[in-house]
Simulated scan of single mutants.
Amino acid sequence: MTEFQRHRRLRKTAGIRAMVKETYLHKEDLIYPIFVAEGENIRNEVKSMPGVFQFSIDRLAEEVDEVVELGIPSVILFGLPLEKDEIGSQAFHDHGIVQEGIRFIKNRHPELVVIADTCLCEYTDHGHCGVVDANEQILNDPSLDLLAKTAISQAKAGADIIAPSNMMDGFVTAIRQGLDEAGFADVPIMSYAVKYASAYYGPFREAADGAPKFGDRKTYQMDYSNRMEAIREATSDIEEGADMLIVKPALSYLDIIRDVRNNFDVPIVAYNVSGEYAMVKAAAINGWINEKETVLETLTGMKRAGADIILTYHAKDVARWLEEK
């Protein structure tokens, strides 16, 4: 008989498979998103994202206490203000909802790493991530000053990491300079460097009440057909002072995660977005898939593609499953 390789030898038993396992998923890899809403006694489940809630500050303890108890080391905050205006002024208000959320969490759990999403879309009455002129054009440079003000106010509130998600040209430069001049040179920037204009964001726009009131975001978020553009965007952000790079979404962009991993030696974050979460949840609720095995396989795939960190709405469930294992 012709000789051939017996690869199955290393799959023979669970012990051998564990011995040769190449990629691991850990609790330390996880960032859990939290939606903080102005008001009182709010704990509203997002209909399109079962298990995900909007919390007012007075109900926030029950969420962050659970996160800490599960051993998840980091959260990222998104805000739902009561008032919106044309420049998103609540984004950079010293007592804005995210700023108050940061203070509450850092006071209650100082060891928890708190990341602040830095954008304007949740705070503008038009729903776009920058200043808009009379012709409904998103103005790049005037938006940069507001984004820097937002980052500074979040750092003042105690944010450990600033995560700008707006995709304006030069946003890392503006924020890095603003933080440095304000005395926050040690606060790192986790840049949404590679952010595609994606249909997978639908449920998030319900959760954060941030859908644009006109047009779309394709003049500033990336075309999902493009690959080399991701390297150009990431290169710019690194040169401008980014400390970590986010690729968003993750599941349909594993090739991009690998490209970014191969080209840059900073931590890479995969954002497992709302639509990816909602699809799994819907299929699991209908009994079409095994939720636990599907989620663990999916997130391990993101790690295998090159992600160091995964920002995911599945984080609490994953932490429980990992504890079981």
Rank of each mutant, 00 (worst) to 15 (best):
K47P: 06
S48T: 15
S48K: 14
P50M: 14
F53T: 04
Q54D: 03
F55P: 05
F55Y: 15
S56C: 09
R59L: 13
R59S: 12
A61D: 13
A61E: 12
A61V: 05
A61Y: 02
E63M: 10
E63C: 14
E66F: 00
V67K: 06
E69P: 00
E69V: 02
E69M: 03
L70W: 09
I72T: 01
I72R: 09
S74H: 01
S74I: 06
S74R: 14
V75W: 02
I76F: 03
I76M: 08
I76K: 03
L77A: 00
G79V: 03
G79H: 08
L80T: 09
L80D: 06
P81E: 07
L82N: 14
D85H: 05
E86H: 04
I87F: 11
G88E: 00
Q90L: 09
A91N: 08
A91K: 11
H93T: 07
D94L: 12
H95F: 08
H95S: 12
H95A: 12
H95R: 08
H95V: 09
G96Q: 07
I97D: 09
V98I: 15
Q99W: 03
G101M: 05
I102Q: 05
R103K: 15
F104P: 00
F104V: 11
K106T: 10
K106F: 04
N107D: 15
N107T: 13
R108Y: 09
